[in-house]
Measured scan of single mutants.
Amino acid sequence: KLLSSIEQACDICRLKKLKCSKEKPKCAKCLKNNWECRYSPKTKRSPLTRAHLTEVESRLERLE
């Protein structure tokens, strides 16, 4: 599967780190437990900047 097509777990399953069936409108866990089942939009991760990478590398060197 391509990364862009990976389905996201519902908010509660993601928060509780449960295996989500990803069914809509309610996944199996939410249906069974009568929880409100919501699927928040995916958040875009910002790409690493060179400055951040350099900072992490220098912190790693100090720890070694």
Score class of each variant (00 low, 15 high):
Q8Y: 08
I12W: 14
R45T: 04
E55I: 09
E23V: 12
D11T: 03
E55A: 14
C27N: 01
H52M: 03
R14V: 00
R59E: 03
T54V: 08
K32C: 09
E57M: 00
L63R: 08
Y39T: 08
L2Q: 14
A51T: 08
Q8T: 08
E36Y: 08
N33D: 09
E64L: 09
E23T: 14
K1A: 11
L53F: 03
W35T: 13
T43V: 10
C10D: 01
K42V: 09
C27W: 03
K22G: 02
K17V: 04
T43R: 10
T54I: 07
K32S: 11
I12K: 10
V56R: 02
R38A: 13
N34W: 07
E36L: 12
S58P: 04
K26W: 12
L60G: 05
N34H: 11
C37G: 07
L18Q: 08
T54M: 08
K16F: 07
W35K: 11
E61Q: 12
A51C: 11
L2N: 13
H52F: 09
R59C: 06
L2K: 09
K32Q: 12
L53V: 10
R14W: 01
S4V: 11
P47V: 04
A9R: 02
I12Q: 11
K26H: 14
K17L: 03
K16P: 01
L18I: 06
K44D: 04
L31E: 12
S5C: 11
K19Y: 01
N34E: 13
K16A: 02
K26M: 13
R59V: 02
S46Q: 01
E57R: 06
S5I: 12
K29G: 06
R50M: 05
K1C: 15
S58V: 14
R38V: 13
N34Y: 13
K22I: 01
I12C: 10
C27M: 02
K22W: 05
I6Y: 11
T49Y: 06
W35H: 13
K26I: 15
S40D: 02
R38Q: 12
S40L: 07
R14H: 07
N33T: 10
N34I: 14
S46L: 03
R14P: 05
K17A: 04
S58L: 12
C27D: 05
P41L: 05
L48P: 04
D11R: 02
C37T: 02
L60Q: 04
E7R: 08
K16N: 06
K1S: 15
K1M: 14
E55S: 14
K26L: 14
K19N: 05
C10A: 05
K24W: 15
L31P: 03
C10L: 00
A28V: 12
R45Y: 01
K24P: 08
S5T: 08
K1H: 07
V56M: 08
E57Q: 06
K22F: 05
E61L: 14
K24D: 12
S21L: 02
E61M: 13
P41D: 08
K29R: 07
C10E: 08
Y39L: 05
E61V: 14
R38M: 15
S4L: 15
C20G: 04
W35S: 14
L31R: 15
K1T: 15
R45P: 03
K29E: 02
L53K: 04
C30Q: 01
P25D: 08
E64P: 06
C13R: 08
S40P: 00
S5N: 08
R59D: 02
L53I: 03
C37M: 03
C20R: 00
E55F: 10
S5A: 09
R38F: 14
C27E: 01
C37V: 01
T49L: 04
T54A: 09
L15A: 10
S4R: 05
C30E: 04
N33A: 11
K22H: 09
P47S: 07
C20A: 03
E61N: 10
I6N: 10
K17Q: 06
R50H: 00
R14T: 04
P25E: 08
I12G: 14
T49R: 02
T54K: 06
S5K: 07
C37Y: 07
S4Q: 10
P25F: 04
E57H: 07
C10S: 01
L18K: 02
S21F: 01
A9V: 08
S4K: 05
K44G: 03
K32T: 15
K19P: 06
K17M: 00
E36T: 13
N33E: 10
P25I: 07
K19L: 05
E57C: 05
R14S: 04
L3A: 13
P25S: 07
A28N: 12
W35Y: 15
N33M: 09
K42C: 07
K17H: 08
C27Y: 02
P41F: 03
S5W: 08
R62L: 12
E7H: 04
K29D: 04
R50A: 00
K19F: 00
L63E: 03
P41Y: 04
P25Y: 01
V56C: 14
Y39E: 06
K42E: 03
K42I: 10
E23M: 13
E7G: 09
E23P: 04
D11Y: 04
K1G: 15
E61P: 02
K1F: 13
L48I: 08
S46Y: 03
R62S: 11
C37R: 04
E55N: 12
L48Y: 07
L53W: 04
C27A: 04
S58F: 13
S46M: 05
K19G: 15
P47W: 06
N33V: 08
W35N: 14
A28M: 11
L2I: 12
W35V: 15
K26D: 12
R14M: 03
Q8P: 09
R59P: 03
S5M: 12
T43S: 12
K16C: 06
L3M: 11
E55P: 00
C30R: 03
P41M: 07
V56P: 02
K42T: 10
L15V: 12
I6L: 13
Y39K: 00
K26Q: 15
L2A: 13
C37L: 00
P41G: 09
E57Y: 05
A28S: 07
S40H: 03
I6E: 11
K22E: 04
E23L: 09
K32A: 11
P25H: 02
S40M: 07
L2W: 12
L3G: 11
L31V: 13
L18M: 15
V56G: 02
E23G: 12
K16I: 00
K17T: 03
E57V: 05
T43E: 15
K24T: 15
R62H: 10
E61S: 11
Q8V: 05
Y39H: 06
T49G: 00
L2D: 14
C20F: 06
T43K: 06
L18R: 04
C13K: 02
C30S: 02
E57K: 03
N33Y: 12
L63V: 07
N33I: 03
A28E: 11
